[in-house]
Every structure is written in structure tokens, then in C-alpha cells.
């Protein structure tokens, strides 16, 4: 059983990458908008479906075909990916304008409740438009490559790589750009940010945009990894996402990154002992453990 460990850890890096991308966005909105967004998983689903829609469109038009080497996708994925990120970001900002903005002064739990409503609306709009049957990103069986003693498919290496790149981008953004610093400032102290003259509504829009774009990326990568997507994709990801955010510490996007990886690895390693159906239960177990032992998470402050 233990010989499988390195392989499971490798799989954990892959699913951890997907969870991390979702968890970062969740952590950002949590720390800047001060509520747990239960619709975040469905933003991942939205991104996955928008990309899929464009992929189907390109296939139908007979353009941008082919694949990149051993990867399961080709040039079509580039515009599909970017358009999906942009589309999801715009949608999230729109939802904020219509719903959460009107609840800015309400108790945080009202925003939480509203986000549950948004989650059901998003998911069922997708269900209405695309149906309940899964959509396929690709059907080809992939050969695995041997790297450092574990087997990984080219797609999986890509997922880990892209997630790493996006994480680095986010770090640079938060550390060196004016908007990034303002986001950190707002997470620290929203009232002071107002007093300082920071245009808080604009920063909030940026937060939604970035968080949603990262979620969309996570959703698309999940589609690439699982080869298919269903409308339940995001809702099922909610537990691991929350587990990652709480494990890493609310208010710390870097914590969310670590949390995402840890949850991913825990889930995969657990398959050596428990049925794969119970992966979300593992994430939940870790979540409860953290809430009992150390509610502020590994890196959290409050």
C-alpha cells in the first residue's frame, strides 16, 4: 500500500492544483467582501461550460483543430480558455452589481444566504441551457509519461504547470500593483480603505474579476483532467474548496494555495484506504478537524 504513496501524492498535486485555483478566489472574496460565497463552485462550472461551448463552436466551424503534442487539446483551447475567464469574470461582477452590492450594509449572513440562491440559479441556468448529460472535453485515452518515478499524463503536468504560473501571476499582482495592494489593504481594514480615499467599489469589482477568472481556470482544468464536465462540478467542489480555505486560514490567499494542495493530496492519498466516492468526506473531515483544533487555519490571522 505504501508503494503507491508517491503516485497518489502526484495525483494529489494535480487535483490540488484545481482546488487551489478555486480556493484562492474564494479566499479573496471572503477576505475582501467578508462573506463565504457559496456560489464560488458554480463559477468554476460556468467557466468550464463557457470554454466547452467555445471548443464545440470551433470544432463545428472546423477551425483551430489539432492538438499540442501529447496534450489532449490544441490551439482551440487558447481562445476558449481566455474567453471563458473573461466571461466568468464579467458575470461575477454583474452578479455583484445586481445582488451583493445591495447587501453591502446587511449582515454578512444575508450575503451568504443570497450566495446560496445565486449558486442554485447559476447551476440551473447551466442545467437549463446545456442539459444534465456530461459534456466531453476530449475522449482520447492518454498515455502516461514517467517523471521522477511517478506516472503522469501530459495533461496533468500541464495542469500543475498552469496552476503554478497563475499562482505566481497572482502573487506578483498582489505584491506589486496598485490594485493588488489596495486589495490587501481592503482585506485588512475596509473602513480605513474608504477613509484613505480608495474607491472600494472598484476594488471589489477587481476582486470578483480575479477570483472568478481563477475559478473559471480551475473549472476548465478540472474538465481537462476528468475529460468531462457536468453541472454539478462546482457544487461538488465546494466542500474541498471550503476545506482548503479554512485549512490555509481565512484572509490569506497564500494560505488557500497551501490548503488547496494539502486537501488535494489528502483526498488522493485517502483513496488507498477508502473508496473514492468518499473523497469529499475526507476534505470535510479535515475541515472539521481544523475548526476544532485551530479555526484560524495554518496561516490565518483573525
Amino acid at each position: 500500500m505504501w508503494e503507491r504513496l508517491p503516485q497518489l501524492v502526484a495525483y494529489g498535486l494535480v487535483s490540488g492544483s484545481v482546488i487551489t485555483l478555486g480556493a484562492i478566489g474564494l479566499s479573496l472574496t471572503y477576505s475582501i467582501l467578508k462573506f463565504a460565497n457559496f456560489a464560488h463552485g458554480d463559477l468554476m462550472t460556468t467557466g468550464a461550460y463557457i470554454a466547452c461551448g467555445f471548443l464545440l463552436l470551433f470544432r463545428f466551424l472546423g477551425v483551430l483543430g489539432g492538438r499540442f503534442g501529447k496534450l489532449s487539446f490544441g490551439p482551440a483551447m487558447i481562445p476558449a480558455f481566455l474567453l471563458a475567464l473573461a466571461g466568468t469574470a464579467i458575470l461575477a461582477i454583474l452578479i455583484d452589481r445586481l445582488v451583493y452590492r445591495r447587501l453591502r450594509r446587511a449582515r454578512p449572513v444575508m450575503r451568504l444566504m443570497a450566495s446560496v440562491g445565486v449558486a442554485f440559479v447559476l447551476r440551473n441556468v447551466i442545467l437549463f441551457s446545456a442539459g444534465a448529460d456530461p459534456y466531453y472535453y476530449s475522449r482520447k485515452i492518454q498515455r502516461a509519461i514517467y517523471i521522477l518515478g511517478v506516472k503522469l499524463k501530459a495533461d496533468q503536468l500541464f495542469i500543475i504547470g498552469l496552476a503554478a504560473v497563475l499562482v505566481v501571476f497572482l502573487h506578483l499582482f498582489l505584491s506589486y500593483t496598485k490594485v493588488g495592494k489596495a486589495m490587501r489593504a481592503m482585506a485588512d481594514n475596509p473602513e480605513l480603505a474608504q477613509v484613505t480615499g480608495i474607491n472600494t467599489e472598484r476594488i471589489i469589482a477587481w476582486t470578483w474579476g480575479i477570483g472568478a477568472a481563477l475559478a473559471a481556470a480551475g473549472g476548465i482544468l478540472a474538465g481537462i483532467e476528468n475529460k468531462l464536465i457536468t453541472p454539478e462540478l462546482g457544487w461538488q467542489a465546494l466542500l474541498p474548496l471550503f476545506a482548503a480555505v479554512i485549512l490555509g486560514g481565512i484572509g490569506s490567499p497564500y494560505g488557500a494555495m497551501a490548503g488547496g494542495m494539502l486537501i488535494g493530496m489528502a483526498e488522493e492519498v485517502s483513496t488507498a484506504f477508502v473508496s473514492t466516492a468518499y473523497k469529499p468526506a475526507i476534505a470535510f473531515g479535515i475541515l472539521v478537524l481544523m475548526l476544532i483544533l485551530r479555526p484560524q487555519g495554518l496561516f490565518g490571522r483573525r
Binding site: R184, A185, A187, D188, N189, E191, L192, A193, V195
Partner: peptide
């Protein structure tokens, strides 16, 4: 300049 919470601690 407010009386309390008048800086951004993590910056």
C-alpha cells in the same frame, strides 16, 4: 486619521 485601526497591518 481615525483613532483606532488607522493603519493596514499586513502592508
Amino acid at each position: 486619521v481615525p483613532q483606532v485601526d488607522n493603519v493596514f497591518p499586513s502592508l
